[in-house]
Design a protein around this nucleic acid. Structure first.
Length: 317
DNA sequence: AAACCTCGCAACCGCTCCACC
DNA sequence: TGGTGGAGCGGTTGCGAGGTT
């Protein structure tokens, strides 16, 4: 018996999302929150399946997403985490605020893989490629090997049961059974001189504060994109004044009036401490651990849904 | 200038996981 | 405890943009 499709696909639209569809989805989710994805397209008036809506939201429309290429530090983290976790992109993404599993997966496949190969590192095993030792000076190989020792050791903590299912992940040979969920405790890799010297990433245009300001105070767009493919600025082109902000969800579950047409309220709860705590999302990360701690504490100032892992991001504009 | 090629990324597909009954 | 359905995950595909011939 075949699996039931996730939705009735007859008459449903596929392919790139239009700006209008995006707007409908954002409008619905900001006003109603995330509930059952299957019902979202129906309630939002979209001819899409729920799965498509969820992907569009999580990978593209979520307001907390960082756009642009991964920074050096993020790239380093991805490499290190991949060495520990393998192709578990969502786990890796959970260590990188504002990045999605899809984005990291794409970046890995298009950029990092090539870089590692160029450096003589097998992107699957994170060990030096034997054939490439000819191409790389011995000193460089030694540095690579030194770098690889730490994640390998850390990887021993990964749940063996789960890893056995991943035939192609890096650490099939990891010994010792350990407690499950240990992977969630994997440490954020520290800045490492070797890695800093080894990787030279592209210029990384991270989101600047002024861009965020633009989003919080939308101005008429010069020309709204005809398709979703150019929607890095898309949210800025939307009239979000009608939307509810996370911090205004004083008590979502108790049905306190969630609808507010006064967008000026949207920043009321964003005091200086909270805003400054967002720096780590906006600037390059030198002391991420501290900043994440600050951010966590700042999030506690934002009541109710804002602290929900999936929905805290609503307030990031 | 046009045809072709390559690359990057958004989106889809199918499978697994997990909560609920 | 097993079945079921929804959500999530990872792999893959398709298309558009930019580069090359």
């Amino acid at each position: 018996m075949g699996r039931q499709p996730c939705c009735d696909k007859v008459g449903l639209k596929k392919g790139p999302w239009t700006a209008d569809e995006d707007k409908k989805l954002i409008n619905f989710l900001l006003n109603n929150g995330q509930c059952c994805w299957r019902t979202v397209p129906k309630l939002a008036g979209l001819l899409r399946c729920g799965k498509s809506c969820r992907l569009r939201w999580t990978n593209y429309l979520r307001p907390d997403l960082k756009r642009g290429l991964l920074s050096d530090y993020e790239e380093k983290m991805v490499i290190d985490l991949h060495a520990q976790l393998g192709n578990r992109w969502s786990k890796i993404a959970s260590h990188l605020p504002g990045r999605t599993d899809n984005e990291i997966k794409n970046h890995w496949n298009t950029h990092i893989k090539k870089k590692l190969k160029k450096m003589g590192i097998d992107p699957v095993t994170h060990k030096p490629l034997v054939s490439d030792q000819v191409q790389n000076p011995p000193s460089q190989i030694n540095q690579i090997q030194i770098q690889q020792q730490r994640p390998l050791a850390a990887s021993l903590k990964i749940d063996r049961n789960r890893e056995l299912k991943k035939a192609d992940t890096s650490y099939e040979s990891s010994s010792t059974l350990t407690e499950s969920k240990e992977e969630d405790k994997i440490e954020t890799p520290p800045c490492d001189d070797i890695m800093m010297n080894s990787f030279c990433t592209d210029e990384v245009p991270l989101i600047e504060p002024d861009e965020i300001l633009m989003l919080s105070d939308p101005t008429p767009s010069s020309s709204s994109s005809s398709s979703s493919s150019n929607s890095s600025n898309f949210l800025g082109n939307l009239d979000l004044s009608e939307f509810e902000w996370a911090c205004n969800y004083i008590d979502y579950n108790n049905n306190i009036d969630m609808k507010s047409n006064d967008s000026s309220n949207s920043m009321e709860l964003w005091d200086d401490d909270f805003m400054s705590s967002l720096d780590f999302l906006l600037n390059d990360n030198e002391d991420v651990d501290r900043k994440i701690t600050d951010f966590d504490s700042a999030l506690k100032q934002c009541p109710s849904r804002a602290t929900d892992q999936e929905s805290w991001a609503y307030g990031l504009f």
